[in-house]
Amino acid sequence: MAIDDGRVRRGPRGPYAKSEKTRMVILDAALNVFAESGYRSGSLRNVAERVGMSEAGLLHHFPSKSALLAAVLERRDEQTQEQFDFDPSHGVEVLRSLVKLAEYNASTPGVVELFCTLSAEATSPEHPAHGWFKERYAFTRGMTLTAFRELAESGDLRSEVTPEEASRGTIALMDGLQIQWLLDRDSVDMAGDLRSYLNALLTRPL
């Protein structure tokens, strides 16, 4: 339960609460299945088996595999937003959170592989995750651009670097580091390399 304006608000009860809990369990299982087998090879049956239900029961919560994938991606984003500060008005904190995110991603190689594979496949407009990735990159560009503009106004971004260049370069570096890390995890430090790049853009270190 949560407290707001002096009033106690309780979470959902009864069948709805049970259904929502089941939905979250399914999403966590689906993320693991897709991370281990990929979206194309990971089946609804695999997911259903993980949570101890029939495929028909799973389809009661998610009408299709593409709908399940969309919900998994949204769930992953929600978890990331809860863990890290991505308020673009806090420029330095956004950059620090990006470094922390890169560090966290190194602990979930299966998820990183899934996202790298999906982002490449989703460049096709017909892919079920195309819309999600398009919106996600638009959001990320906007967030980092706002953060770097705030840093430029405060004098923390080097004068020879534009916020636009910094935003594009940061996103490109994060994506590229993930691929290199998947291919050779012993030679690539995603968080360390990202921190070094960002420090090179700033007038004072993170």
Rank of each mutant, 00 (worst) to 15 (best):
R136C: 06
Q83S: 14
G38T: 10
A17S: 03
L114P: 14
A71R: 07
D175K: 01
T140Q: 11
N32Y: 13
E74T: 08
E55K: 00
F86A: 01
G192M: 09
K134L: 10
I3K: 00
T80D: 01
Q178K: 03
A166L: 11
S196T: 09
N32W: 15
H60Y: 06
R50K: 11
A102E: 14
L73T: 10
T80S: 03
P12F: 02
L118F: 04
L173T: 06
R9M: 14
L73E: 09
E78W: 05
F148L: 11
E74C: 10
H90I: 07
T22F: 08
P128G: 12
A120C: 04
T117D: 12
E150M: 08
R76K: 12
V99N: 10
G14D: 10
S167P: 01
A106R: 06
D85T: 00
G38V: 08
S37Q: 15
W181T: 04
T22C: 04
L31V: 15
T22V: 05
A35Y: 03
R13N: 10
W132S: 07
A166M: 13
A70R: 02
E113V: 01
V94I: 00
T80G: 04
L59N: 01
R141K: 06
T146V: 06
T22N: 03
T146A: 05
H61P: 10
I179T: 02
A35K: 04
T144L: 00
L177N: 11
L68W: 08
R76G: 06
A17Y: 04
T108Y: 06
E126P: 03
D5I: 04
M53D: 09
G192K: 05
S66K: 09
L69Y: 07
K65W: 05
E121G: 14
P15E: 13
G11F: 15
A120T: 00
M143V: 04
L206I: 07
I171H: 03
S66Y: 08
R149Y: 07
E121Y: 15
N46P: 14
R96N: 09
L194G: 09
P63G: 13
V47M: 02
A56I: 15
L201Q: 03
H90M: 06
F62D: 02
